[in-house]
Structure formats: structure tokens, C-alpha cells
Nucleic acid binder design. Structure first.
Lengths: 215, 215
DNA sequence: AGCCAAATGAGATTCCTCTTGCATTAGTAC
DNA sequence: GTACTAATGCAAGAGGAATCTCATTTGGCT
């Protein structure tokens, strides 16, 4: 396991001391990475998490399975990389109607739409499944969701500036109060929230914020 | 595949028309079922969902692996049966302090304790993982959670009777408003909610209920 | 342009999951 | 108790996932 500490003069030590794909990140390595992640995203959308296997990713991406195992370890490794890549993408425009409750209802609809889409939902669901056993997946999932909270908390901050919500309110709590019942309905209840439910969630979150319960 | 429709007189038709384990449910069949479910629960607790395999369940329960495959199909089938069995167990006593917010905070602690325990948490986590792909697991998970909601909604109904909460309030909404952020913190955030957070969740749910937002 | 090793591809190999066939055990009805 | 057969155990084997070896390709550097 341990590498020799003396300066390698001319012996047959050929083991690189970094992970594969980091020494020559350009050219074929970069192309392969893109092809693998794209194939993984497509297969996740088409087949779901359980049915997506490394062999299929290899076939579709035209990258050898042994290469995928070497660089990502296993299926979850690919999905984690995919998730990290997707979360780096910039967010869209935020609702800004001047009313907190209405903004939250619109945001709730955006959250549902994202979860219904391949890029957002399928990968996130895979992370939920993998996260039950893997701390790394859990951390990535939390990172993704936290990133989205940071991207959207401006909605609550505007309400604070307007004076609709007490100063000292934690904008992230406001977003989480909206998001929690949405995810609960999705992953635990197994159903997509209705528009009526989204409005109720937004009403509860806005009311709690206005009442100073989210500081 | 298709069985002959004529009355079997004396031919070599030996295929039973019901699932294995249903024709002779007593004696060895019952003992094996108990041993398999107990072993599965232990292994889930010790190894987690991903690492629990049929072969290990067979070794620990002293039931042949082929028997497990025949009766439950695969690992998830065993876990589903285990979940259905656990959910049939009676619930414990409910908090009843006369104050909705305090009752909800105590209930929140109970929910966290259940999720931290093998019987509740490990099986539920396995269902969350399996539910991402399996509609059956999703249904079972929803059934378990709904059952718990039904068992605990009395807390909210008492508040309605006391007049602390408007008539027409849906007691299940009250419970779900408490539970959603707990599950959110657990499965999405990857962390166990703190006592302070539990109190905030209870405060928000109680306040929403009192304000008539949960009808 | 030329060199060196990182990265890859193809195939062999190992390990594990799940299925199947057959002989044996044991639950249930009589 | 006896008969019938569902249920089980055991072993063989098919199929797939993951690892390993080695020859080849190719990116990065001079």
C-alpha cells in the first residue's frame, strides 16, 4: 500500500500517487467523462436508479466498463460525480411578486417541476436511495439541497427588507419550511403535491415567518 | 405456464395454485418466517440496507436461501414483509399535557426516537431506499407513515375539542406539518434534528393549526 | 517531432446473486 | 396412525457484476 519514500531513480515503480483522470484531465479523459455522465443521466431517466448498471453506461457512452470502474469505483460513484456536476449549474430566475406567500407558492411549483425533470429529480432520487447507506451520498444530497436553499433564500430576504417579516428571521428556515412538506409528500407519501397542497404549504411558511417563528 | 382446465383425475399435475407458505401456514412454515424476519431485522441494523443480502439472512436464520427466494422473491420482498409485520404492532401512549405545542414537541421527540431505533428507523430507511424504484415499497412506506399519523392525530383532535384550534382543522395535516421537517432533516439534511429544532417545528405546526391554516 | 507514462480497451477471471431439479421432511386431512 | 403433498434443504448451474492483466492509445512535456 505505502509508496517508497526514497526518490525513485530508475526502478519499475509505475503506480501514480493520484487518482486516475487527474494527471491528464484534457483530451480523451475529458471526453470520456462527459460521455459517461451523459449516458448515466439518460439511463437514470429511462430505467431508474436500481436498473441502471455500469455495463449499460459503458455501452451507451462507448467507454469501456473497466475504465468506469477504475475512475469512479462503481455506479454510485458515477452518480455522485453527476450530481456534483449538475449542482454547479446556475439557477434560474426567482419569483418576485412583492408578496411572500405568493412567491413561496411559485417557488414550490418550481421545486416540484425540478423534481419531475430528469436533471433534477432523477439524480436527487438516486441520491436519496444511495444516501440511506452512503454518508458520501448523504453529504452530496445535503450539499445540493443547501445550495438550492442558498439560491432561493433571497425570496425571504426581500420580505424581510420590505418589513413584511420581522428582522432576525432566518431566510433559510423560511425556505425549508416550504420545502420540507413538499419533499415529505414526494418521498414519504409517494405522490406529487397538488397545487392546493402547495398553496397550503406556502401559507403555513409565510404565516410562520410573519409571526416571527423562524428566527 | 397455463394449467389444464379439466378436473385433474390422476395425472402428474403437482403445481399448487397459491403462493408458497399459504397452504400449510402452521408449524415449520411459521417458524421459518419468524426466523427469517428476525434475522433480516438484525442484519439491517448491523450492516445497513445495501450490505444485507439473502445469503446472510439464510445463514443466520438457518433457513435455506432457496426457500427465501421461493417465498419472498428477493431481499426487498423480505424487507417488505418485515415492514408490514412491524407496522401491525400497537403504538405506545401519546403525550397529553393539555397544550398542543408541548404535545407536538414531545411527539416529535418520539418520532426521532423511533427513527433512531432498529425496529422503526432501519426498516423505514430501507423502505425509503427501495421506494425510489419500487412502487410497492413506496406504498408500504406511505402505509406505515399514514398508520402512524392515524395513531397520533388524537393529539390534534384533543386540541380541537378544547377549542384551542378551529373546528374543521384536519388533524392529519397538523401531524404532517410537524413530521415533514423532521423527516426532511433526517433524510435530506442527513442529520438528526436537535431539541431546539424540534421545538421550532412544534411551534410552527401549533401556530398554523391555531390560525386555521390546516383545514 | 519524439519520449514517457497516464489512460484506455478488450478479454480472462473471480465472486456473488438468483434459479432450478430432485430427494427428503413434515403439516394437514382423513 | 396413515396418506398425500406442500414446504424445505441441498447442490448444481446460469447469469451478471466487479476486478485484474496486459497490450495499445494518447495526452503532456521537451
Amino acid at each position: 500500500m505505502q509508496e517508497e519514500s526514497h526518490l525513485a531513480v530508475g526502478d519499475s515503480d509505475t503506480t501514480p500517487d493520484t487518482a486516475p483522470g487527474t494527471r491528464r484531465p484534457g483530451g480523451r479523459t475529458a471526453r470520456n467523462r462527459e460521455a459517461v455522465l451523459e449516458a448515466a443521466l439518460e439511463l437514470l431517466s429511462e430505467l431508474g436508479y436500481a436498473a441502471t448498471c455500469v455495463q449499460d453506461i459503458a455501452n451507451r457512452s462507448k467507454v469501456a466498463a473497466s475504465t468506469i470502474y477504475r475512475r469512479w469505483g462503481n455506479r454510485d460513484g458515477v452518480i455522485l460525480d453527476l450530481a456534483q456536476t449538475l449542482v454547479a449549474e446556475p439557477a434560474g430566475a426567482l419569483p418576485d411578486t412583492g408578496d411572500l406567500e405568493r412567491d413561496l407558492a411559485l417557488l414550490g411549483q418550481v421545486i416540484v417541476d425540478v423534481m419531475s425533470s430528469p436533471r433534477g429529480g432523477v439524480v436527487q432520487s438516486a441520491l436519496v436511495a444511495a444516501g440511506v447507506d452512503s454518508p458520501t451520498a448523504r453529504k452530496t444530497l445535503a450539499q445540493i439541497v443547501n445550495r438550492r436553499v442558498e439560491d432561493t433564500k433571497l425570496i425571504a430576504e426581500r420580505a424581510i427588507e420590505r418589513g413584511d417579516v420581522p428582522a432576525g428571521t432566518d431566510a433559510r428556515h423560511v425556505i425549508n419550511t416550504l420545502a420540507a412538506p413538499i419533499y415529505h409528500r414526494w418521498y414519504i407519501g409517494g405522490e406529487r403535491p397538488t397545487t392546493e397542497e402547495l398553496h397550503r404549504y406556502a401559507r403555513v411558511a409565510a404565516h410562520a415567518a410573519r409571526s416571527g417563528l423562524l428566527s
